[in-house]
Amino acid sequence: MLWSLYLPIAGNATNILLLLGLGGVVGFLSGLFGVGGGFLMTPLLIMVGIPPTVAAASDSNQIVAASTSGTYAHYRMGNVDFKMGIFLLVGGVVGGTLGVQLIKILRALGNADFVIMVTYVVMLGVIGSYMFMESLQSLRHKAPRARPAAPARPSLYARLVQALPWRMKFAKSGVTLSPLLPIILGLFVGILAAIMGVGGGFIMVPVMVYLLRMPMHVVVGTSLFQILFTCINVTVLQAMTNRTVDMELAIILLLGSTLGAQFGARLSRKLKADQLKILLASIVLVVMIQMLVGLIFPPHLMLAYKGAH
């Protein structure tokens, strides 16, 4: 096989062009939607013969490059709200740590995998369906051009947000709210991300859009900024503790993903927010259906190496 390369940590050989292609596609989606792409890349790498633990850790490493490239591209376009990103990051780091502890407790009780699987399917299903329906409605009611007016009576969530102290202005996002809100939401996403073993971009994006009311283009840049730091932390920790980061694999993937992220970021500028949302929702739903199929039908192999979800 031409273009074959041996990956020393993965302990397997694979095709360079295949990895470049995978990196390019996932990087493109990363730049387009502001998601790390871990929920797509890790299963794809496992499919091409990379051990699950190495796939997840090396993917974190390549996301560092893709999100650096994507953040930089969005920063040049003025689409990164650093202030909001830092508050979300603080919450995310604390939440991630809590989530890891929670998983340890669940593993000791023996039902961690059930919780992980059900969380995955429910989260992907709820987020995907809500985004899809909402974007579809917006696209259908495009004619008046103007956004529907805010409801006359504020919702319970809006009243709770209003009641939080230390309100401040987030100029880039065009919102005024308490920094506690992004910290709390970041915490929630961090817990979920740790349980699901992903960066959390595909949860963070809807959270920013629907709960922080940030404009979609700022959401993409800010999400990438937050993912960058999360993945730096994960890469170094995985390299130190589990020795599962395959640098060779990550470099090939990141060459593809950084290129893809640039094209994705450019296209995201051309597409309308609702178009972006409906595309992301479709991908999230496809992944959810694929996971659901895997849960319902018996697997080909009834044994797996420890370390994979």
Binding site: P8, I9, N61, Q62, V64, A65, A66, S67, T68, S69, G70, T71, Y72, A73, R76, I232, T235, V236, L237, Q238, A239, M240, T241, R243, V245, M247, A250, I251, L254, L255, T258, L259, A261, Q262
Partner: peptide, 26 residues
């Protein structure tokens, strides 16, 4: 490097990723 110098390996991996990301962006 990965098995005997994990911190160095992880840091190098991250630095390469950041550098490549910036170069591509530039």
């Amino acid at each position: 490097l990965a098995w005997n110098h994990g911190i160095i390996y992880g840091t190098v991996a991250v630095l390469i990723a950041i550098f490549t990301g910036f170069v591509m962006g530039y």
